[in-house]
């Protein structure tokens, strides 16, 4: 087995004495579409926040492409090649769709105040490149026509796509999607599955997603990990997970419907 792209070992996280994550270990191989599922409050988003540097785990190791991520600030982790979307839409308000996506190129460009004030040739070239990349990412997710609209006025499903485009503009190797299907209708979910596959196949980006819609998870992912009460209780292919008694137990024991797995 080759060295995984993302590797977590023994992650522990607690807030004010409450254990949120306990000894979580897991790995994502490069080129995979992997999913993280689990009942509400299982710690999925907390785990994302540990990977992306928003939370500091009290124990454990996180390595990405051989680099130790612990102690790195979120922006450094993004620069290292991990991009994310948010569970609740976090687009920059009062800014256009294109300007939102241009933010992703910030960590891949350099121009500062002097370049901007003097309008240096290098700065102008860079601005062109930022626009071009942002536009390409918007076209890729299929909302290029709306680039000049204020992002937060777009229909919900399109805002989700803009968030994905914005993450793609950081030129990641690993893309973390936090509940990308939340609030989408059936047709939009099918389109999302297509989009996730094309991100992996055409852009060679590894994908890790958190999702409540288990049907979507089973269709799109090659590996599924299940988190419950801050612990990793199962890991395997979608088929293995669907028949794992611990997983069924976890879902039965919560408010959610165990039928959702099938």
């Amino acid at each position: 087995m080759t060295e995984p792209l993302l590797h977590l070992a023994g992650i522990g996280l607690s807030f004010a004495g409450n254990t949120v994550l306990q000894d979580v270990s897991f790995a994502v191989q490069e080129g995979r579409v992997a999913s993280l599922i689990g009942p509400n409050g299982a710690g999925k988003t907390s785990l994302f926040n540990c990977i992306t540097g928003f939370y500091r785990p009290r124990a454990g190791r996180i390595s990405f492409a051989g680099q130790d991520l612990r102690r790195l600030k979120p922006h450094r982790i993004t620069a290292a090649g991990i991009a994310r979307t948010f569970q609740n839409l976090r687009l920059f308000r009062e800014m256009t769709v294109l300007e939102n996506v241009m933010s992703g190129m910030h960590c891949r460009t350099r121009a500062g105040a002097i370049g901007a004030i003097l309008r240096l040739a290098s700065q102008r070239r860079e601005e062109e490149e930022i626009r071009a990349v942002a536009h390409e990412c918007l076209a890729f997710v299929g909302v290029a026509d709306e680039r000049d609209r204020i992002a937060t006025t777009l229909p919900y499903g399109h805002q989700r796509r803009v968030e994905i485009a914005r993450a793609l503009a950081t030129r990641p190797r690993l893309l973390l999607l936090d509940e990308p299907a939340a609030g989408l209708n059936g047709g939009e979910k099918r389109e999302l599955i297509g989009l996730i596959r094309s991100i992996r196949d055409q852009r060679a980006i590894t994908i890790l997603l958190i999702e409540h819609d288990t049907g979507l998870v089973m269709r799109v992912s090659e590996r599924v990990s299940v988190l419950d009460h801050g612990q990793m209780i199962a890991e395997g292919t979608p088929r293995e997970i669907q028949t794992d008694p611990r997983v069924i137990e976890a879902y039965l024991g919560s408010d959610e419907d165990a039928d959702a797995l099938l």
Partner: peptide, 9 residues
């Protein structure tokens, strides 16, 4: 936070 996640210090 979103800005940090986009790689902005």
């Amino acid at each position: 936070d979103a800005a940090e996640a986009m790689g902005i210090d």
